[in-house]
Design a protein around this nucleic acid. Structure first.
Lengths: 336, 336
DNA sequence: TTGTACGCGTTATCAC
DNA sequence: GTGATAACGCGTACAA
């Protein structure tokens, strides 16, 4: 382990060249003769030189760091995305700077201010609360990648998952099993993806020529407690249903507990489908049938997109389509 | 929204003072007359000046950023700690730089190199894989806070949770319910806390005058799959047990699934206790009895400790004691 | 109390 | 191709 701060200038001296030459070699800014190049590389190795990103940032205007706005750093859902981002960015020499917006537009704006003050080279916003206009304005100042919405603007890449289609195939699965009375537990109504999932749910019904029972449409908060309460309300009101579609896995887990508490078995009495395919979904009891979201891929794609924006090349915007993972929480309807 | 980079120098000009005076006011480095102070503060406000941390880092040697080494950014366990760290650090104007070591000493060392290259002002290491010696060496170079081990060294603060006691009270709970044949699922044997939990388990037996059945001692990997396989091995070998203590919740979830698959009910046939009290523990089926770890507090304490080290004051090292959360996965032993 | 001058480690712009 | 030289924005001795 090299011990203390070796500077570029020392490398230059050691190699018998000027600092500029060293810099050029480091950044590939210009062509340098092979012998000098060799000398410098040797010097770098023997001295254990590591470029100082701080100085680099001041001089070159780039910090090699990317701000990542997530809603909660400890989100079971976005965790995987953060990991994908970290991997992809790290491989390119960039470091992510994670901040949490806590589902609050103001806080999110403050976070972004902090990130910009730290001179991040770009911004990745995972399902933010900011307006499209604010995002567009931001994109005029630095490269921006957003997920969870569709938005076209210069310097901006948006990666959207087809929530409607996901909800649709989940609902079709239930319908295909013979279920007709299907309760829907929606997420935060302010979330666009929540609305899209509801739309997909309804679309599947329409396509199948089945009518949605409005009394079975409930609203949660994307948390376990919301799913649980939704089921409890339904049960307290003596509603009849043979299946439940929760707009995310966390609510599905809450629903499962409520069902369990009331003596209803999954899937024998009630089938249950979630959305997201959290890591824990395959170890819930019973393992949850759910719509898989390629969250880590999303993170990777977002990071790769950012890298592309930074490099001025055309980012690849392809995201895998939604896919239903059938496990053990769904079964054929017995009575209907 | 202030639009473009206002510099300290511009503020100085606007206020009719020298740059150093502005700097002094910003950092409280020296006493400044009230009128100039007022003028500068006005200028800062009207110009919308925001200090550039990059330049600050280069000049002053401080970056106001703290490196945080976690094993996986998407860990369901450490997520809460990251959140606590983010909150506490952020309130003090510091930004965390999260990196993942992936339970690998080499990778962890590389991460630390990256962080040091970025000139972080301090390092928080959450249950790292590095040797005590390496950590001590590190602490000679910059303030270090470590969790998951007890270590005394100058410039280093270690925050340890009493794993042995936690395991002990969990085991006593089971013993108190009349269980005698208790299976133990250990975590990664390389993890010190895994060994401590096993020691606590054994200590409870010793205190109760009960003998541990070596055939019921199994090893997992701290993941769901490990817990599941452990139970499967036990059952395949026709071992008899009325309770299971898993060294963490994730393995307990895996164990629960394995039990469920074999037609064993929790807690009627087998009682189950976990360790950690993950957010999902209260929504598993049945809700899991487990040892609560104050993870967010741990994060807050680690950050506060770092701030104290940075300020040269004595950090408060107190951490809440382990506490058993009794939910619905444990019941009295029927047969023994 | 306040200002001047220099340095932090790199990159960028010139000349050569 | 290569080397001076000047920024980059701020902190801090040192002097006043």
């Amino acid at each position: 382990m090299a011990s203390r701060t070796v500077t570029l200038e020392q490398v230059a001296r050691h190699a018998g060249v000027s600092p500029s030459t060293v810099s050029r070699i480091l950044n590939g800014t210009a062509v340098v003769s092979d012998d000098k190049k060799q000398a410098v590389e040797d010097a770098i190795r023997t001295l254990g030189f590591v470029p100082n990103p701080v100085a680099r940032g001041l001089a070159g205007g780039r910090t090699l760091s990317i701000g990542v706005v997530t809603q909660a750093i400890d989100s079971p859902f976005y965790g995987a995305a953060l990991r994908g981002i970290e991997d992809t960015l790290g491989a390119a020499g960039y470091s992510p700077l994670f901040v949490s917006g806590h589902w609050n537009a103001d806080e999110e704006a403050r976070c972004i201010d902090v990130l910009r003050a730290r001179r991040v080279d770009g911004l990745i916003v995972l399902t933010g609360r900011l307006s499209d206009a604010a995002l567009r304005a931001l994109a005029r100042q630095l490269p921006v990648v957003v997920t969870g919405r569709s938005l076209k603007a210069p310097g901006l890449l948006s990666l959207d998952f087809d929530n409607a289609l996901g909800a649709r195939i989940a609902t079709e699965h239930l319908l295909g099993l013979g279920h007709r009375s299907i309760a829907f537990i929606g997420g935060d109504p302010l979330h666009p993806d929540s609305r899209e999932r509801e739309a997909g749910f309804r679309a599947a019904f329409t396509d199948a020529g089945v009518t949605v029972d409005p009394m079975l449409m409930t609203v949660g908060d994307y948390q376990e407690a919301g799913g649980r309460q939704a089921i409890e309300r339904l049960l307290d009101a003596r509603r009849r249903f043979s299946a439940v579609f929760a707009a995310n896995d966390q609510m599905a887990f809450g629903a499962a507990l409520a069902l369990h508490r009331r003596g209803l078995r999954v899937p024998q009495d009630v089938s249950l489908v979630g959305f997201d395919d959290l890591a824990s979904a395959s170890y819930s009891i019973p393992p949850l049938t759910t719509v898989h979201q390629p969250v880590m891929d999303l993170g990777r794609a977002a990071a790769a997109g950012m890298l592309a924006l930074l490099a001025g090349s055309k980012p690849d915007t392809a995201l895998p389509p939604p896919q239903l993972v059938v496990r053990e929480s769904t079964a054929s309807a017995v009575g209907g």
